[in-house]
Nucleic acid binder design. Structure first.
Lengths: 339, 339
DNA sequence: GTGAAAGCGCTAACAA
DNA sequence: TTGTTAGCGCTTTCAC
């Protein structure tokens, strides 16, 4: 094993094709001018020898490394994994690779990773996390390379990509109304969580200012408790939009235990469209998908544009969410589940 | 933004310290011989200027890039995320960065990523996936660089790291026995899945050859169905070890609906210790943790050893699992949950 | 103890 | 149309 076979260099290719180094270089890069015959001869020689240009030599000259760093504090991967996939997908075809940097919430780790990336001369950095309204533990402000924030908070003048929570929440609430629900409620995570507040505001926009909004935490247990609060002492709502899938699942479970039919008596919609949850819920849950992979793809494209010197307007770009309809809200649709 | 500030080079440091390039280099790398005074003067100048050696220039000479590639087909991240964190943790302190390569199950994508990594001259590759008994869609056999398989199948003579499914399963089953359960059953995923078969065999070792083993799929729905099969027509078991957490949750939910007390009448133990599932189950679920982060850390150390030329014995290394005791099996313990 | 010079593999002026 | 040459930023003999 591990016998590092001598790599073929450009000089080998040149020699084999009977041309000079410079010609070989130009031939392979499509630059310079020469007979098609020469170019093809070089290309042929290169592929015969299985030539791979040394990226470090290239980076040394170009002052570009064709790598970007992906900083995340979401060690769980629930949110950053799709973002990563998207980024990677957008970049690999351009010959750009992605460094994974998990920084937890440790500023020291953040510094180490940042230093490593700077040392490796990444062409840019994408910051992502488990919470869109929080900053990563890293000093990203005065960097000599471009930074894109994807599902993570950056400075106001940064290029930032966020899911359109408001639009997603509106779509979910509207769906409930359109299927005839009139007594709507919203159960969500903690106040102080930007996502919770934005979704709640959007819900109120559609459901009216008097529709109940219950803040709690993001757990199934809170879903149970919320169901109890809504139903104890009378009839509950006939449509509930939840701030995440776990809460929704808690509510659906609680309703089944109370003998309340979902979606017959109550329609329930979650948020996140988290495969393991929406699929296991009985009945399968309608949920709002933040399309994080697409967000990642766009982040990849933006960092590419920035690092090749293009101008990109700063500010927050909101990407649309999609409502993925399943059985928990009445009115079936195709299962476009992602994760 | 994006004004690429002139980087300080070694020559700047040398000039500032009033020494030659060569001396500066040696001073900073702790090589060569010179007065301590000179060395310190150079180091001081370097830190004053915020000097970072250009890794590409270094890689060009050393023929090493201080990067490794992490190949995975687990786009969900359930299994590879902890492995990744572990790898990254083990490597970042050594100045080695990790390229993320998500290959899905697409051989074409695998080829692209592999080429990219070879181009970037990674010092080694770690292969991981969502299923320990399957190969990744990539030709990793005849590579000129070391490869370590972590939770993914490789050739027989490869360096491979796997969780000790058998030991984990034995511990879970033994725990049930020791807490007085005598009618044990095992409910797990599909036959043909190595993990399912190994865990089932280990279960039988402890529970006896006549203890029922039900193969199905990895879902909560299968947990429900299995509960029905075990209980319809009589008394069910008093202890159930499940092949994963979702099955276990399905069973626990089904038992509650049947009015069977967990852990009073039946103790249930899952496998994977997946935070979102074990935490939400009522009562919280005892489960086997595969310690994938530790597996990742070891993979990181191994690839480092291999790429610096050390000899590492090929073969499969099995890393111990830990039983994380919660309430679903009787006998409480501290909550050592990971994810 | 310190420095001059060669060279890692490649690209890009500039000659020929 | 092709080739010669000078670096990119660093490490490393080998003289001094």
């Amino acid at each position: 094993m591990t016998v590092a076979a001598e790599r073929t260099r450009l000089s080998d290719v040149a020699q084999r094709a009977g041309v000079s180094l410079a010609t070989a270089s130009k031939a392979l890069n499509g630059t310079g001018r020469m007979t098609t015959e020469t170019r093809q001869r070089v290309q042929h020689a290169a592929s015969e020898l299985g030539f791979r240009p040394n990226t470090h030599a290239r980076a040394l000259i170009a002052q570009r490394s064709f790598t970007v760093g992906l900083l995340t504090n979401d060690s769980y991967g629930r949110f950053s994994m799709p973002v990563m996939s998207g980024v990677s997908e957008a970049l690999v075809s351009k010959g750009v690779s992605v460094f994974m940097c998990g920084v937890e919430n440790d500023p020291e780790l953040g510094r180490i990773h940042l230093d490593a990336m700077l040392d490796k001369q990444v062409d840019g950095i994408i910051a992502t996390g488990k919470r869109g309204d929080r900053q990563l533990p890293a000093e990203l402000a005065e960097l000599p390379i471009p930074v894109v924030y994807a599902f993570s908070k950056g400075p106001d003048d940064a290029v930032t990509l966020m899911p359109d929570d408001a639009q997603g929440a509106r779509e979910a609430t509207e769906w409930l109304r359109r299927s005839g629900r009139r007594r709507l409620a919203h159960v969500t995570g903690p106040e102080g969580f930007a996502a919770a507040e934005v979704r709640a505001a959007a819900f109120r926009e559609i459901a009216g200012p008097d529709a109940p909004v219950l803040f709690g935490d993001w757990s199934e247990a809170w879903g149970h408790e919320a169901a109890a609060r809504l139903w104890d002492g009378g009839n509950g709502p006939d449509g509930i939009f939840c701030g995440n899938d776990q809460i929704a699942r808690g509510i659906i479970d609680a309703l089944r235990e109370r003998g309340v039919d979902v979606p017959g008596a109550v329609g329930v919609i979650g948020f996140d469209n988290w495969g393991v949850v929406v699929r296991a819920t009985r009945p399968p849950m309608t949920s709002v998908d933040m399309n994080l992979a697409e967000l990642g793809r766009q982040a990849g494209r933006l960092i590419l544009a920035l690092s090749s010197g293009e101008d990109v307007a700063p500010g927050i770009r909101h990407l649309p969410c999609s409502l993925v309809v399943r059985e928990s809200c009445g009115g079936a649709g195709p299962d476009r589940m992602t994760a």
